[in-house]
Simulated assay, not measured.
Amino acid sequence: MTRTPRFDGMDLSLLGVIASLLSVGVLTIYSVTSTAPGGSFPIFAKQAIWIGVGTLVFLVMASFDYHKLARLSYILYGLGLLLLVVVMFSGKVSRGSQRWISLGPIAIQPSEFIKLPLLLMLATYYSTQTRTGWLYRVIVPGLLALPGFLLILKQPDLGSSLSFLAIYITLLLAVGVKSKAFGLVLLTALMMFPFAWGELWGSLHDYQKERIISFVDPGYDPGGKGYQGLQSRIAIGSGELLGKGLRGGTQTQFKFLPEGHTDFVFAVFAEEWGFLGAVVLIMLFLSLFLLGLDIASKAKDMLGALLAIGVVGMITFNVVVNIAMTLGLAPIVGIPLPLLSYGGSATIMTMAVLGLLLSVKRRRLTLIQ
Rank of each mutant, 00 (worst) to 15 (best):
G198T: 00
H205C: 01
K361Y: 02
L329K: 12
R233C: 03
G54R: 00
W100D: 07
L306A: 01
L165F: 15
A70P: 01
Q231Y: 11
P5M: 10
A189I: 01
L122R: 04
L56I: 14
D301T: 03
Y227H: 10
K361M: 05
F64W: 15
S63R: 15
L357V: 05
A296V: 09
P42M: 01
V60C: 13
I295M: 01
L288K: 01
Y30M: 14
G148V: 01
S111I: 09
I282G: 11
I295D: 01
S63F: 11
P331E: 06
L186M: 11
Q129M: 14
P110S: 02
M121V: 12
V279I: 11
S359W: 07
F275V: 14
R6C: 12
G334E: 07
T28G: 09
F256L: 13
G9H: 08
P5L: 06
Y77V: 07
I332L: 15
F44R: 01
L83M: 14
G176R: 06
Y136Q: 12
T33M: 06
G78E: 08
R363V: 00
L76P: 07
G328K: 11
L116Q: 02
L303D: 04
V320A: 09
V60W: 05
M351N: 02
M349P: 01
F256E: 10
L173T: 05
F44A: 11
G25N: 02
S90H: 07
A330K: 06
R363I: 00
A181T: 00
I213P: 02
A166E: 02
Q208K: 04
Y66H: 10
K68Q: 15
T326L: 10
Q98C: 05
V312M: 08
T132E: 12
L339Y: 07
T326C: 12
I108K: 08
G96N: 05
I167F: 14
R3M: 06
G343Y: 01
A235N: 08
L284F: 12
L171M: 08
S232T: 04
F41W: 13
T188W: 12
E199C: 04
G219T: 10
S297L: 05
E271Y: 15
D206T: 08
V265G: 02
Y342A: 05
F44G: 02
D294S: 11
G310P: 02
I234G: 04
S20K: 09
D301G: 03
F264S: 10
M192R: 10
R233A: 08
A270N: 08
S238R: 15
G80H: 08
L246H: 11
R95C: 09
S214A: 15
G224Y: 06
Y125R: 03
P156H: 07
S127T: 08
T35M: 12
V17W: 00
L307I: 15
F44Y: 15
F275T: 13
S161L: 10
H67N: 14
V185N: 01
L357S: 04
T350W: 01
E210S: 13
L59M: 14
P117Y: 03
A352V: 01
W197D: 10
E199M: 13
K361P: 00
G328R: 06
M192I: 11
I29Y: 03
A70K: 00
F64L: 11
A235V: 10
F254A: 03
T366H: 13
T250L: 13
L27W: 13
Y136L: 10
L15P: 03
P218S: 06
I234H: 09
Q155K: 06
F193Q: 07
